[in-house]
Design a protein around this nucleic acid. Sequence first.
DNA 1: AAAGGGCTCAACCGCATTCAG
DNA 2: TCTGAATGCGGTTGAGCCCTT
Length: 225
Amino acid sequence: MQEEKLRKGPWLEEEDERLTAIVALLGERRWDSLAKASGLKRSGKSCRQRWKNYLRPNLKHGQISAEEEQIILQLHDQWGNKWSDIARRLPGRTDNEIKNYWRSHLRKKSQVPEQDLMLSKCDTDYSVALSASNGDCTSDKDDILGSSMDFSNEHKLSNLEFPSSPYENRLSDWMSCWSYGLSEMKHQGDFCSSDSCFCFPAWSSDDSGNGTSLWDSSTSLWDMD
DNA sequence: AAAGGGCTCAACCGCATTCAG
DNA sequence: TCTGAATGCGGTTGAGCCCTT
């Protein structure tokens, strides 16, 4: 059997759309399976990274503000190269973005030599960190559904092959609901995100919208049973 | 206008950690 | 408890853009 070669390099718009749609459907986990399910010739790892750093809703893509810069400087002073920790204090920013920004803009500004930073790391009161606001829930991806859904027809999700783990079996079942689910979601007109998770407002059922969501917010898991 | 050097940022890589069976 | 898979993280790379000469 010949393993198909995985794509590398910059992502195409179509790939982004596919990934966005499949993550909306299946959630942010099991990236390998998700990569296969999407039909993308990308590794799960690559999909995960693309999602986290670029496609995830609520990401800010604009310039880092002066306040944000101050925060980065301050936290980097405190914690060193803990990019993911710093990113958590800056809603909408990714660790990658902060890391790049620090390297290109702030490294020279930083007063502390890099090797000393590791010594000064401490778990001081994180409250410095800025109660970051969250209101910024607007998403550029409002039209995700509209622009991406056609691929379900073109790319034959039904042809997917999954190994036989329980999750993947259930995933297969899910895929068979694909078309129905999408049209239903589209009808609902809104699948919003909260933090890093998508949740479908109502998955199925009657016209009144009293559907049952399969997203279990208490466990942060999809209820596939 | 062309060359080249520096900068930015998306993406890759490898290791560490966590999770699930 | 062990082991393999999945995920998280930080460092590095490289393409493309911009600025200077």
